[in-house]
Computed example of a mutant assay.
Amino acid sequence: MKVVVGPLPTMGEFDLKDKTRRSLSGVACPVVVDGRHICLVGFDEGAEARTIAINENEYEAKKNPIDLGPNDSEMDVEAVAADDRYYYVAGSHANKRGPPCEVNEKSHRLVRIAYDPATGLPLRKSNGKLKDVEDGFDITKVLSDDLRGSVGKCLGSDEGGFDIEGMAAYGGRLYFGLRGPTATDGGGAIAYVFETGTSPSLMTQDDVRDPFHIRVASGKAVRDMASVDGGILLLLGPDDDNRDVGWSIALWKVDEEADRSSPVDTADLGRVDLSEAKRAQCDKEVKPEGMAVLTSRAEGASEVYRLAIFSDGMCDGGPMIVDAIRSAP
């Protein structure tokens, strides 16, 4: 893993309070316009999203609000994904951190927003409201019995509460990566990824499949996901026990025919060390929670993914540009 540049200075503004500006936790970038990736970003404070424009040299924050509603709700957005027509914005579906570990029903949401494929911007009506937005998904309908039973429990290994942190659209389906619950696997751990279709009509119990069991290091789980040719990149970091286990990136070669009861291995692309990224103003801490793929290129027998890594705890996400390298098998 190689840090190329960053944190990139921010042009423009989100027009949000500093606490919210420091809570960027999900990103998806489906369109490139004039050499810049147009992305939707979500925050784990409030219920608004924003758009950004980014490449490896420039980063612009847009102030136009994307209201996820309802007013004064705490959606706790933790994951954003996109296919060729829609953005998908997921709440964590997690209980509030305790005590008293209260259920946060407002985080039990998955919102689908249509965007203009020419601009990457959400489609709007003449009055500025979102033109095509769907908020009728119920994720619990597609969970296996074990995962459904973890919804509503306290976070951490003691109770094994449910916590969505990553999401990616791949091969016409949505994949959700969990920070919790996790399971032990010898000296390591198992992180869960479940999937569903991308339309409300498919999000039914007829679409239930057992989750994938992703083999990870002890204390780690999924913190974000991003689609690439041939698979999904996983940003791995501390699980809900919050141990100091660091962050890393892995490539998961998605195989729908894989045995769902057997652990799946991934290709390790290296450790993410952004400890020196903190800036003097506004930032509080560096917690990588958003990952966007800017480019992918071959170098000899290796594949190099140029990524923008965003941190919860840094104002406007404090994007760092890094190269993750997948060596030939």
Rank of each mutant, 00 (worst) to 15 (best):
P100H: 02
S201V: 10
A94I: 12
R112A: 13
P122T: 02
V208Y: 07
S23K: 03
S248K: 03
G128L: 10
R326H: 08
S150Q: 05
Y170G: 02
G300R: 08
E299G: 04
V111L: 13
N57G: 01
G187S: 15
T182E: 05
T198L: 13
G91A: 08
V32R: 07
G42A: 03
I113C: 11
P117I: 12
A94F: 13
D229Q: 14
R50P: 09
E159Q: 15
F194W: 05
F194K: 00
V228A: 05
L234E: 10
M75R: 12
I190A: 02
R97I: 03
S218M: 11
D239P: 07
V293K: 02
T204V: 09
E285T: 09
D239R: 08
E299I: 09
S262G: 01
Y59M: 06
P70Y: 01
M203G: 01
M320V: 14
D163Q: 01
E159W: 02
G149L: 00
V103H: 10
K131D: 11
D323T: 08
R36L: 13
K129R: 13
K2A: 10
E45K: 14
V216N: 06
E195N: 13
Q281D: 13
D18S: 10
I52H: 02
D239M: 07
S201K: 12
G69H: 10
G300P: 09
F212C: 08
K96A: 12
P117V: 15
V77H: 00
L40I: 04
G187I: 07
N64L: 13
I164L: 13
A267R: 10
L236K: 04
I214M: 09
L123A: 06
K220G: 01
K17P: 07
R179H: 01
G149P: 02
S92Q: 04
L130N: 01
A226G: 02
A49F: 03
G12L: 10
D283R: 05
R85P: 00
L123T: 08
F310Q: 01
M203R: 04
A81V: 00
P288N: 08
N57M: 05
S261F: 11
E289L: 03
C39G: 05
P100V: 03
D323L: 11
L236S: 03
R124N: 00
V216M: 09
K287L: 09
N95E: 08
R271T: 14
V193K: 08
G186Y: 12
G186A: 12
V33L: 14
K2Q: 14
A226L: 07
T10I: 03
H213R: 15
A28C: 09
G120P: 06
I249N: 07
C154G: 00
A258S: 15
E60P: 00
D84H: 12
A79N: 09
G180N: 12
R326S: 06
D268N: 10
S327N: 13
